[in-house]
Design a protein around this nucleic acid. Structure first.
Lengths: 113, 113
DNA sequence: TCAACGCCTTACCAATGGGTAATGTATTAC
DNA sequence: GTAATACATTACCCATTGGTAAGGCGTTGA
């Protein structure tokens, strides 16, 4: 896998990896063991492998702190790979997004009523 | 696979399927054979399977026209699945996106100079 | 110094998934 | 009616991948 776009989408294809991203978005940095604690049905080494994939895709970044390794979200891949890809379909989903927003506004109106 | 988010990201994980989406975005609707013609190293039935996956993910929609089947982009999945997912990371990649835009502006400035 | 810790790496297994080939099913053309 | 077209579907093969278990390497604390 050399294509960064392919790396990114392959990395996002796994639900465990998406959950890891969610956790990192909430916590603003976490160690492997902290993340592994959130996955009772998984071994720590498995999380490590997932983090490798996320790092290869440029979605996370790791810094050493003693014997621990802190993982954080790396927004660069979002901007340099995902955003350009999304831009190609912008005319298509913009319209649908507007409809979604209208629906949300409508639902909000219902709650207020 | 029951989770729509999982279906969508799994569907986007394959480069052939992303290319199909690109072609559909350019052409505004195409048949299976038209799409298959763009993939010399693939058999038509393979394209059909990919289109099934894309349809299951809600990324494309198909309408019958006699014995042909026309496939189009379905923006609904973009808006109802992808957009909410992106929204969670908006604070992260917004900053990076701004930097990217600044870089683009810089490059444009260079070309003008 | 040495044992425990935190993480990475490797080897390996089972399951998934992309690919083809063959068959089935409408639909069109002759 | 019959043949050809346009896809869908099924069965099957092989490569990839998620998962575990075991071992390695650097770091920390006694």
């Amino acid at each position: 896998m050399r294509d960064p776009q392919d790396d990114l989408f392959k990395a996002l294809a796994d639900p465990t990896r998406r959950r890891v991203l969610d956790l990192l978005a909430e916590r603003e940095g976490a160690t492997v063991s902290e993340l592994a604690a959130e996955f009772p049905n998984l071994v720590a080494s498995g999380i490590s492998k997932h983090l490798m994939a996320l790092r290869a895709a440029g979605l996370v970044r790791s810094t050493r702190d003693g014997r621990r390794q802190i993982y954080r979200l790396e927004p660069e891949a979002f901007a340099s790979v995902l955003a350009p890809w999304l831009a190609k379909y912008e005319p298509y989903w913009m319209a649908a997004l507007e409809r979604l927003r209208a629906l949300a506004d409508c639902a909000e109106g219902d709650r207020k009523a």
